[in-house]
Design a protein around this nucleic acid. Structure first.
Lengths: 195, 195
DNA sequence: CTCGGATGTAAGCACATGCTTACTTTGCCA
DNA sequence: TGGCAAAGTAAGCATGTGCTTACATCCGAG
């Protein structure tokens, strides 16, 4: 699925195939459970090239995770972010959000460099967007609380595989969460945002 | 700290020293990042005994995590559970909740057996207690949402090490969460519980 | 055409780690 | 007290894994 049909000798294509394969596997399994051999195999490339082009597994991880970031964040208007992120977290297809880098860190949470990538990139961006939804003076704390909730829901549903919760009605869950979030992220001078 | 002062030949003591060491390390580092050599060293026991007594690293993990479970759950009246669990999650001492098995799974979330232990033991117990706080017909979904929030907060604060959030005022966070939780876990026939 | 750097490959090194084995030491009890 | 099972130990096996190296192959510039 990731490897090219015919690629004779093309460093750029190989590099991006490795990036794509790394991205997919890190998201699906986390850092530890993904081997460089797996990545190279999925990319249809030789393992040594991975080190030639990226230097180390950790550097590849960083490159794959930072990369273009999360399209969801870029494309979604802030007012809709919580709802759409929730929808992704609750998506019924078992291995969810193939393109959601949040999964990579949920599955690799023991690693300092995982935390660093998240902290300096994705986490900061989520905080910023969510905080923009309220004019409370502790906007960032509120934003972090919402992000924490999203992460926890993902953790419980799909990583910890809490069956009952995973099978629960997504619309009911969404209603509960949006109602609570509306009281956290509200503007004092107008109606609660359409989250 | 874990090993005994003088223990000449005492299988039971060795076994429980191994259990205690395993518990501490699994909670602190997660499953992958904890080696059997580490555990044996901390317990002051020979590595081979670990396998004699428990069979495998995974079995030891299960034994250490199930064990007596979480005293917090056993000792805390349901109405106070959310508040106390939050207090633990927000505790200022950097490596928090030395005795909180929730950390082990936050740091090992890639593993199926981790998920299984959580799902069948801790998770089910938390759900049960939290669900008892409301008489809504979807009590268990609400309980899971609260548990998810607690997990997410722990993840963000201490595993992902989101600095700003980790340094935020714990009382402010607590106030926000308890207010939102009160609307989730309420009884229709009386006042919201003193969470 | 050819030659040299870029691209790709096979093989393996070094090390960590779960687990096993063959052995020694201890202390209880007949 | 002497023997023996229980408790403890040292050493190492088997394997997986990140990374390196020495080499083969391709392709475009001169």
């Amino acid at each position: 699925m990731v490897e090219e049909e015919f690629r004779r000798r093309d460093a750029a294509a190989t590099k991006s195939a490795l990036l794509a394969a790394a991205r997919a596997l890190f998201i699906e399994r986390g850092f530890d459970q993904t081997t460089v051999r797996d990545i190279a195999a999925l990319a249809g490339a030789n393992q040594a090239l991975l080190f030639r082009y990226f230097g180390s597994k950790e550097a590849l991880f960083r490159a794959a995770m930072l990369n273009e970031g999360n399209e969801l964040l870029a494309e979604t208007p802030p007012e809709l972010l919580v709802g759409r992120a929730l929808a992704r977290m609750l998506a019924p297809d078992a291995p969810p959000g193939k393109d959601n880098p949040l999964w990579a860190l949920l599955r690799s949470s023991a690693h300092e460099h995982t935390a660093a990538v998240f902290r300096d990139d994705l986490g900061a961006r989520y905080r910023h967007v969510l905080a923009s939804l309220t004019d409370a003076d502790d906007a960032e704390v509120r934003a972090d609380l919402v992000l924490a909730w999203l992460l926890g829901i993902g953790l419980l549903r799909s990583v910890l595989d809490q069956r009952q919760f995973a099978e629960a009605d997504a619309t009911k869950i969404t209603a509960h969460v949006l109602r609570a979030v509306a009281t956290l992220l509200e503007r004092v001078d107008q109606r609660p945002p359409t989250v």
